[in-house]
């Protein structure tokens, strides 16, 4: 069946936010300090709020009666369209903060551009969420600098985190046919065009953090088409367990 690019665009945006939000919620009660615990929980909450808007929109466009909760809890990993970066495990605190920084820096640029698209349903959510995403990008960049320019141990942990996560960055900027159709339809933006601004932003942080930009590795991709790492299945099992066991449960 031919996919509707507008519905799929909303789904991709919603899935990124949902999966990263769920990942961050895993830190609840485990972060190194209470302030960090609150920060990560708040970031997760913002992202789940975005997911509710975008998945709700995807369901409305599809018109088959699926709402945000149905899309979140009753799809399998093959139907999820999030990028591979956001499903990567939390690892240690350095890996969580690196993942956040790599994603939020991208998401800020994406939403800045998307706030100007023709379709108000997309532009309004992007514009609304942008203020929150700027906090995420700033907070995570602060930690990348603090850890990178910290002790020998914290620096090494940042190097290790980047060494793993860097391979997932190119996928963020990939444009497939569906993305191009979304641009034509006035709901999407040319993600590839965001890369120079992204590089400028992260290179500035690398410098301040006394970190070397990693060499480009063999890119891992496929998340947008449902080809995920095994990590997503485990995340979904935890996230979907209750609604699937008790599909009629109500608050």
């Amino acid at each position: 069946m031919r996919q509707d690019p507008i519905m799929q665009s909303a789904l991709r945006l919603g899935d990124d936010a949902l999966i990263l939000g769920q990942r961050l919620s895993e830190w609840c009660g485990h972060a190194p300090t209470i302030e960090v615990d609150l920060s990560l929980a708040n970031l997760g909450l913002d992202l789940i709020g975005q997911a509710m808007h975008f998945l709700g929109l995807a369901g409305d466009i599809e018109g088959q009666g699926r709402d945000a909760d149905t899309l979140a809890f009753f799809r399998t990993d093959l139907d999820f369209t999030n990028c591979l970066l956001v499903e990567q495990p939390n690892g240690d605190f350095a890996q969580t903060m690196t993942r956040q920084w790599l994603y939020s820096t991208y998401q800020q640029l994406l939403f800045e551009a998307m706030a100007g698209v023709e379709d108000a349903r997309f532009a309004e959510v992007a514009d609304k969420a942008l203020k929150e995403v700027r906090y995420h990008a700033e907070l995570s960049a602060d930690w990348v600098i603090r850890l990178g320019d910290g002790t020998d141990v914290s620096h090494q942990k940042m190097v290790d985190a980047l060494g793993w996560l860097w391979r997932f960055v190119p996928e963020l900027f990939q444009m497939d046919e569906l993305d191009s159709l979304a641009v034509e339809a006035g709901v999407g933006v040319d993600k590839a065009a965001l890369r120079p601004a992204y590089d400028a932003a992260i290179n500035a942080v690398f410098e301040e953090a006394k970190l070397t930009r990693p060499d480009d590795q063999r890119t891992l991709t496929g998340g947008r088409h449902g080809h995920h790492s095994e990590h997503l299945g485990h995340l979904l099992a935890t996230m979907q367990h209750i609604p699937r066991s008790h599909p009629d449960a109500r608050w």
Partner: peptide
């Protein structure tokens, strides 16, 4: 209008 996107 909501205050925050994810405000519970």
């Amino acid at each position: 209008t909501p205050t925050y996107t994810g405000c519970p």
